[in-house]
Nucleic acid binder design. Structure first.
Length: 788
RNA sequence: GGGCGAGUGGCGGAACAGGUAUACGCGACGGACUUAAAAUCCGUUGCCGCAAGGCUUGUGGGUUCGAGUCCCACCUCGCCCACCA
C-alpha cells in the first residue's frame, strides 16, 4: 500500500457496515426536525449512473450537516417501482416484472450504500409492495368519495407502441415520453383526477415555497391562466347557440367567421344537409392525424364550411361557421370567433379560404395582435382596446371569465405493472368502490402482461371473479386498468413519516411533525409532472382534513445533469456512460462525492472529467497525510493558520447551508494547501477540520476520527464546530490603493483601520505618496482607497 | 412565435452587497527524487512586452471615484412551452 494514500477499498466498506450496524442515520422522532428528501429512484436494470449521486450526495451533505447541528433529521429513501419501463424491460428479458424489479432494488440499494449515503433504511418503501399500494388505492377511493376522481369519455392520448393512454404531462412534442412513438387521439372512457379544482391554489401557493424561480414560471405557464370573456352567438335559422371564449372581445367587430373544433359536441346540429358529407369526411381525416401531424400543419391550415351562419351579437352580421382542427376541442368551449385581422392563425385560415378580413384595431401591419384604438367598431371607434374590452362585453351581455390551460389528470392505464384501480361496475357502468377494509386489491400474478391494448388484468383467472358481497351491491364487472405510476409517487413522501402503519396511510401527528419537507432535491424535468401532481394530492388531502399544511415541499432544488466527457448527454447509445461502481473502485466513494460537488454550481449541467476526480482524490490524500503526520504536534496556535481556519469554518458553514458545494470544496483545498506549506504544522485545527469534512467525505472523516485520532465514538456523535472560537482580533489586511480606479499599489493595515491610518501609510510609501496631490479620495474600509 | 436563463484563460469554474477579475481544480511547461517509470514534492502558467508598462469578463454605448456585477441596444448559445383563441 502506498503510504501517501489512504486505502479506500478497506475504509469505505468498513465504515459503511459500522454505520448500518449502529443505525447512525435513523431519525429519532423528537426534537427540532429536518426532513431532507431526494426524489426516489426508478430502479431500472441499468443501475445508477454518475448523474444520480449529484443530487443524492448534495442532500446527504445537507442532512449530515443538520444532524451535526443537533437536528432530528429524517433522510429516507425508497423505490418508485411500478410503471411502464419496468414492465417493458421485464417483457424484453422474459421475466416477471416483480422479479426483475426486486433484483433491481437490491442492486440499487447496494450502490446507494456504496456511496456512503446516510439514508434511514428502516423507512424504505417500495411502491409495488401491496403494503404500500394499498394506500395508493385508498387515496384513489378518497378522491372518488370527494368527487375529485371521475370517469369521462374523451379524446385522450394513446401510445400505439406501449398500448396505453397517457397523461398530457407524459406526451412530449406529440410523442410518448417513454418510447418516442407518435401519440394519437382516441375517444375512450377513462379515469381522471380533478386537478383543475385546485388551479388557483396551485398558482397562488407558489408564493409560499422556496422553489427556483424558473420552476415556478414553468408551473405557471403549464397551468396557463388567461383572462378573457365568454360570449354567446345565436345560430341563424335555429334555436342553437354557440358560446366562445376569447381574450380579445375588443376585436368582436372584426369577427368574420366562426370555427368549431372537430370534436365539438353535437356538431351535427350546426351542419346543413348539403355540407354533411364534406364535414364528416373532414372529421374522419382529422381524427387520423397524430399530434405530430397537427403540429406540422401549423402553417397549412385545413377546414370545411358547415353551411350554417352565426349572428355577431355586436352588429347583427351573419358570419359563416366552419370546422377546423386548428381549434382544440379540449380548451375553452372548443369554439372560437375568428378575427383574421388580429390573430395570426385566423389570418392564415382566412387567406387560404378567402374569408373577409376586417381591421378593427389600428396599429401595425395585419395581422396586428397588439393593442390600439378601435376602428370599424361603430360607437366604440376611437376607444382603446383595453377599455373597449369591458364596454363591448357589457353591450353584448358577455361574461368576463378566467380559463386555464391545465387539464384534469388522466390516471388510468391499460397496462399490468401498476396499482389496480379498486372499483367494480354495475350493469349501468356506474362505479362501485371497493371498501377500504378489502384493500389492497392485489395485483394478480397469473397474467399475460404483454400489452395488447386491452387491460392485461383481464387475462387473470381469479381476478375477474366478483366476491359475493359486491355482487349483492350490483357489481357485474371489475375495473381492469391500473393507476398511472405518478399516482404512486404523488404521496410517497407522506408514507416515510410512518412507513409501517397498517391502519392508516400515516398517522396525523407524525405527518404534522415531519412535514413539510425542508429540502427536496430532484430533476427539473419533473416541474410539470410529479411536482404538480404531488402538490395537488397534498392540497386534496389537506382539504379532507388529514393534515394542516398546503404545500409539501418548502424548498426545492434541482441538480444539474452530469454530461459525458464529450459534453453530450450520457446515454448507452452514445457510449459515454460512466458507472459509479468503477469510479468508487478506482478513487473511493469520498472522491466521487467531493468531485460531484466540486465540478461546478449544483444546478448547472457539467461534463464529467476523470482528470478532475483525480485532483479531488489528491486533495483527500493530502488531507489524510497532513493529519496523520501532524496531529500529535503541539497545538501551538499559529496565528496565520488560525485566521485561515476561522475563515474555513465560516465558509463551509455558509456554503453548506446555501448549497454552494463547489466553493466549499475549494475552500477545503485552500486551507489544506496553506497548512502543508507551513514548515511546522500545528494541530489545534485537526479535530474540528475532520468534523466539517465529515458530511463531504464521511468515510475518510470517520477513519481519521476513530483510527488516526483514536476516538472511541463515531464522528456522527460530534457537533458542528463554532467558528468564533478561532476568531483572531486585529488581523492585518491589505487595502488596495487606486488612482482613478486603477490599481497603483497596496498597503497593509489592521482590520478596521480609519481613512487617516491608510492615508498616512500611503504618504510613507515613496511610490504612492504623489497620489496625495489628488483632492478627492474614497475609502471603503478594509478594502480599497481611491484617489481621483 | 411566447417564456426563462447564460456568455469570464486551453478546459470545469471563482469573485460577499458596485470595490485587488481569473480563487480552487484540470491541462501544459520546467525542476527535485528514481537506473527508469508511477506516486510525491517544488516552481511557472490570462494576453502583448526583455522590461517599465499596457490590455482583458460576447459586441457597442451609458451611469459611477470605481462596472464581470447596474441601465440601454445588439450578437450568440441553452432550456421550457407552443394552433390554448
Amino acid at each position: 500500500m502506498d503510504p501517501n494514500k489512504y486505502d479506500h477499498q478497506t475504509i469505505d466498506p468498513k465504515w459503511q457496515r459500522y454505520w448500518e450496524t449502529n443505525k447512525t442515520f435513523e431519525a429519532k422522532n423528537k426534537g427540532k426536525k429536518k426532513y431532507i428528501l431526494d426524489m426516489f429512484p426508478y430502479p431500472s436494470g441499468d443501475g445508477l449512473h454518475v448523474g444520480h449521486p449529484r443530487g443524492y450526495v448534495a442532500s446527504d451533505i445537507v442532512a449530515k450537516y443538520y444532524q451535526m447541528k443537533g437536528f432530528d433529521v429524517m433522510h429516507p429513501v425508497g423505490f418508485d417501482a411500478f410503471g411502464l419501463p419496468a414492465e417493458n424491460a421485464a417483457i424484453k428479458k422474459g421475466v416477471h416484472p416483480a422479479e426483475n424489479t426486486a433484483n433491481n432494488v437490491v442492486r440499487f440499494s447496494e450502490q446507494l450504500k456504496s456511496i456512503g449515503l446516510g439514508y434511514d433504511w428502516s423507512r424504505v418503501i417500495n411502491t409495488s409492495d401491496p403494503e404500500y399500494y394499498k394506500w395508493t388505492q385508498w387515496l384513489f377511493l378518497k378522491l372518488l368519495e370527494n368527487d375529485l376522481a371521475y370517469q369521462k369519455e374523451a379524446y385522450v392520448n394513446w401510445c400505439p407502441n406501449d398500448k396505453t393512454v397517457l397523461a398530457n404531462e407524459q406526451v412530449v412534442g406529440g410523442c410518448c415520453e417513454r418510447c418516442g412513438t407518435e401519440v394519437v387521439q382516441q375517444k375512450r372512457k377513462q379515469w381522471f383526477f380533478r386537478i383543475t379544482a385546485f388551479t388557483e391554489d396551485l398558482i397562488k401557493d407558489l408564493d409560499l415555497v422556496d422553489f427556483p424561480e424558473g420552476t415556478k414560471e414553468i408551473q405557471k405557464n403549464w397551468i396557463g391562466k388567461s383572462e378573457g370573456a365568454d360570449i354567446t352567438f345565436k345560430v341563424k335559422d335555429s334555436d342553437e347557440e354557440i358560446t366562445v371564449y376569447t381574450t380579445r372581445l375588443d376585436t368582436l367587430f372584426g369577427a368574420t367567421y366562426m370555427v368549431l373544433a372537430p370534436e365539438y359536441e353535437n356538431l351535427d346540429k350546426f351542419i346543413t344537409d348539403q355540407q354533411k358529407a364534406t364535414v364528416e369526411g373532414y372529421i374522419k381525416e382529422a381524427s387520423k392525424k397524430t399530434e405530430l401531424d397537427r403540429l406540422a400543419d401549423t402553417k397549412d391550415k385545413t377546414g370545411v364550411f358547415t353551411g350554417k351562419y352565426a349572428i355577431n351579437p355586436a352588429n347583427g352580421e351573419e358570419i359563416p361557421i366552419w370546422v377546423a382542427d386548428y381549434v382544440l376541442g379540449s380548451y375553452g368551449y372548443g369554439a372560437v370567433m375568428a378575427v383574421p385581422a388580429h390573430d395570426e392563425r385566423d389570418f392564415e385560415f382566412a387567406k387560404k379560404f378567402d374569408l373577409p378580413i376586417r381591421k378593427v384595431v389600428s396599429g401595425g401591419e395585419l395581422p396586428y395582435v397588439g393593442e390600439g384604438d378601435l376602428v370599424n367598431s361603430e360607437e366604440f371607434d376611437g376607444e382603446s382596446s383595453n377599455t373597449a374590452f369591458v364596454a363591448i362585453t357589457k353591450k353584448v351581455d358577455g361574461k368576463i371569465t378566467t380559463k386555464y390551460r391545465l387539464r384534469d389528470w388522466l390516471v388510468s392505464r391499460q397496462r399490468y405493472w401498476g396499482a389496480p384501480i379498486p372499483v367494480f361496475y354495475d350493469k349501468d357502468d356506474n362505479p362501485i368502490p371497493i371498501e377500504e377494509k378489502d384493500l389492497p386489491v392485489v395485483l394478480p400474478t397469473d397474467v399475460e402482461f404483454r400489452p395488447s391494448g386491452e387491460s392485461p388484468l383481464e387475462t387473470s383467472k381469479d381476478f375477474s371473479e366478483i366476491p359475493e358481497k359486491y355482487i349483492k351491491k350490483g357489481a357485474v364487472r371489475r375495473e381492469f386498468d391500473t393507476l398511472d405510476t405518478f399516482v404512486c409517487s404523488s404521496w410517497y413522501f407522506l408514507r416515510y413519516t410512518d412507513p409501517n402503519n397498517d391502519k392508516e396511510f400515516a398517522k396525523k401527528d407524525k405527518i404534522n411533525y415531519w412535514m413539510p419537507i425542508d429540502l427536496y432535491v430532484g430533476g427539473a424535468e419533473h416541474s410539470t409532472g410529479h411536482l404538480i401532481f404531488a402538490r395537488f394530492i397534498t392540497k386534496a388531502l389537506q382539504k379532507f382534513g388529514y393534515f394542516e399544511f398546503s404545500e409539501p415541499f418548502a424548498k426545492l432544488r434541482h441538480p444539474g445533469m452530469v454530461l459525458g466527457e464529450n459534453n453530450e448527454k450520457m446515454s448507452k447509445s452514445r457510449g459515454n456512460v460512466i458507472n459509479p461502481d468503477d469510479v468508487i473502485a478506482g478513487f473511493g466513494a469520498d472522491a466521487l462525492r467531493m468531485y460531484e460537488m466540486f465540478m461546478g454550481p449544483f444546478d448547472q449541467f457539467i461534463p464529467w472529467s476523470t482528470a478532475g476526480i483525480e485532483g479531488v482524490r489528491k486533495f483527500l490524500d493530502r488531507s489524510y497525510r497532513v493529519i496523520r503526520d501532524n496531529h500529535k504536534n503541539e497545538a501551538d496556535e499559529d496565528q496565520d493558520l488560525k485566521e485561515k481556519f476561522y475563515d474555513l469554518v465560516v465558509k463551509i458553514t455558509k456554503d453548506t447551508e446555501n448549497m454552494d458545494f463547489n466553493t466549499a470544496v475549494s475552500a477545503f483545498m485552500v486551507f489544506v494547501n496553506a497548512a502543508i506549506e507551513k514548515e511546522k504544522v500545528s494541530s489545534f485545527w485537526v479535530e474540528d477540520f475532520v468534523k466539517i469534512l465529515a458530511p463531504y467525505a464521511p468515510h475518510l472523516a470517520e477513519e481519521l476520527w476513530q483510527d488516526i485520532l483514536a476516538k472511541k465514538t463515531s464522528i456522527w456523535e460530534e457537533s458542528w464546530p463554532e467558528a468564533k472560537k478561532y476568531k483572531v482580533e486585529g488581523r492585518i489586511i491589505t487595502v488596495v490603493v487606486q488612482e482613478a480606479g486603477k490599481k497603483r499599489g497596496e498597503v497593509n493595515v489592521k482590520e478596521g483601520a480609519s481613512q487617516q491610518d491608510v492615508v498616512d501609510l500611503v504618504d510613507d510609501d515613496p511610490k504612492l505618496e504623489k497620489l496625495l496631490e489628488y483632492k478627492n479620495r474614497i475609502y471603503i474600509q478594509d478594502r480599497i482607497i481611491n484617489f481621483y
